[in-house]
Design a protein around this nucleic acid. Structure first.
Lengths: 227, 227
DNA sequence: AGGGGTGCTCAAGGTTTCGTCAAGGTGTGT
DNA sequence: ACACACCTTGACGAAACCTTGAGCACCCCT
């Protein structure tokens, strides 16, 4: 799932945290000292750092500052230091969350999920590629073999829904629910017509389909012709 | 400076939080009920929401879910509920941080800063360049092929919002929320008119667009003509 | 092979959305 | 109070889009 580095000198806690995150499916590496931790961070560009403030060789807040000088990687601090002043200073030094020992494993997991979720939400979900077909939901445009397709709203939405579930058969009922939104009294004929137009624009026919394969009595599915 | 919404039924805490954030230079609006809060969130597209879990009309975690259904806005939860279970459930429902009452003002400030920093780290301010078009939000000026554009406030804000999301289709509803601020009952025709004026100043027509491409039934997007 | 049901396509007509204009309102600075 | 820039609104033509019904082709089951 994500690459995580744990920097913590206490053997028991280090392993507890590492085990916990590994069990969540993360790829975890550990360091017991600040120097070791810094090397791992700059060397492996992780997705998340778990950092103890009380390290033997260098104070954790110093390490945090050094990490921030070279990287925007999310950092969750775990420490025995209570008190507002430490929290404020640490967060302002660039930490993303601050957890006081002893903490529960469940809460650590939840806070790690929250931080990772936020860090990853920045990246926009890119276009979907199926053979020579490209569907880009956020730009709301599609292209076939490099040539842009000029699709109407309904046509695009149908294609998008099918592209988001490549290879899966989608019933007309579902398509209507997804594309038309809210209880709709229209007939399913409408779906047929739009699919027909879509096929025409994709340069294929119902008899010789390439991308849009209809499954009699069930629905339609979008497939990669090269498979 | 960011736009913040505080949803909290307790008068004293609501004002304490609002005052604190306003003193930090934020633009704060408050709501005492979940319904009011939801309206503010969907109507004004804020940069941050402070949310109390114990609301009178609807549980705060329900409101959080509703917000998440329509928005990625960062949410910091403040509540009297201690205990891992509540923390985990709330964070997994999409909250970005969880603060237990009574909390110190200093820690609230620091956690708000941390959340905003992370949320905003994606965007860089500074001029946005799209082909021959330059939009500078901080200077609040724009130019086309080197020639400065003389835009009205609404025209500039529309262009800025579209420029911050180049290539992405933005609906008129979103544009209204971003540009007009606060729940607004105006007609969407207004957006059309401003866009029309904007196009005129960009030296293009709706029939032969260069930068401002309208997507029928959905919204508008700003594109680089050379692509 | 036949029948019932399902899918495909066409053309016509209706509906929604968009672009633009002009009139009028609001607010600000002179 | 006046001039000015800005914003809102309603109206209307134009364009894009959607729906519907009918006819025919096709699939599948008996």
């Amino acid at each position: 799932m994500a690459r995580v580095i744990v920097v913590e000198d206490d053997f028991e806690i280090r392993h507890l945290v590492a085990e916990t995150l590994a069990r969540q499916g993360h790829d975890v590496e550990s360091a017991a000292t600040a120097m070791e931790g810094l090397q791992l961070v700059v060397g492996t560009s992780p997705d998340l750092v778990i950092l103890d403030l009380g390290l033997p060789d260098l104070d954790g807040s110093e390490l945090l500052r050094m990490i921030r000088a070279v990287s925007q990687v999310p950092v969750v601090v775990i420490t025995a230091r209570e008190g507002d002043e430490s929290v404020v200073r640490t967060l302002d030094a660039g930490a993303d969350d601050y957890l006081v020992k002893p903490f529960s494993v469940a809460q650590l997991e939840a806070r790690v999920r929250a931080v990772l979720r936020r860090a990853e939400s920045g990246r926009r979900d890119g276009p979907i590629v199926i053979g020579g077909l490209v569907v880009d939901p956020s730009a709301r445009e599609a292209s076939l073999d490099g040539r842009p397709l000029d699709l109407s709203p309904k046509e695009f939405d149908l294609l998008r829904v099918l592209a988001e579930r490549v290879g899966e058969v989608v019933s007309k009922r579902e398509l209507m629910a997804e594309v038309w939104r809210e209880p709709y009294g229209g007939s399913e004929r409408s779906v047929d017509v739009h699919l027909s137009w879509l096929r025409k624009k994709l340069g294929e026919s119902a008899q010789k389909p390439r991308y849009l394969r209809t499954v009699h009595g069930v629905g339609v599915k979008l497939v990669d012709p090269a498979s």
